[in-house]
């Protein structure tokens, strides 16, 4: 039951952010919504018990690829719509207020932690023999070795293609 609720919530968020990615007029906002979208996809992977994929999703997609997107967006310097320059909805005070609240909370935690030292951690359970990462590794390098190798050719093609398109003179 809880899992179903979590799934539908995450799925709705993924869809909602995906719609926002294509409907937002500001390119930078659009890319940032894409980051959120990828993060929720990662959450979906966690829900499915695929923590390794979730970590990869965050590292590669949300971390690596979208940062590249942002670079591209800023390099080509797309003109923002004029209203974006003077945002009437900017709430500087609210931002400072929220930041202050977070700071306060952090301070409270630090003070509380120094007053009541944490109880010793229970012994960590033995690491399962076949973890998530290991399973993915086993599948990739045994059963799916051939598609894995073809994927490396695919990446080579994409790399050569990028060079061909970017090279000034052929």
């Amino acid at each position: 039951m809880a899992q179903a609720i979590a799934f539908y919530f995450i799925a709705a968020c993924i869809l909602g952010f995906a719609v926002l990615v294509v409907t937002t007029r500001d390119t930078v906002h659009s890319v940032l919504f894409l980051v959120l979208d990828f993060l929720f996809v990662a959450a979906l992977y966690v829900l499915l018990g695929a923590q390794f994929l979730a970590a990869i999703q965050v590292l590669v997609y949300a971390g690596g690829i979208v940062v590249l997107y942002l670079f591209v967006v800023m390099l080509v310097n797309l003109k923002r719509p004029p209203e974006a320059h003077e945002d009437p909805h900017r709430r500087t005070k609210l931002g400072f207020g929220l930041a202050a609240a977070v700071l306060l909370e952090l301070g409270a935690i630090a003070v509380y932690g120094s007053v009541n030292p944490a109880a010793p951690m229970p012994a960590t359970p033995a690491i399962p023999v076949s973890g998530n990462t290991e399973q993915v590794g086993w599948l990739l390098y045994t059963s799916y070795l051939i598609p894995f190798e073809i994927a490396s050719m695919l990446l080579l093609v994409a790399m050569i293609g990028a060079i061909v398109l970017a090279k000034r003179e052929l």
């Binding site: 598609p147 073809i150 994927a151």
Partner: peptide, 23 residues
């Protein structure tokens, strides 16, 4: 489906670039 899809991608990506080869 995995093999078919990877093959399809390899072919398609090559063709995307080849189609625009005369820059």
């Amino acid at each position: 489906l995995v093999t078919i899809f990877i093959g399809l991608e390899t072919m398609a990506v090559s063709f995307y670039i080849l189609a625009g080869f005369i820059k």
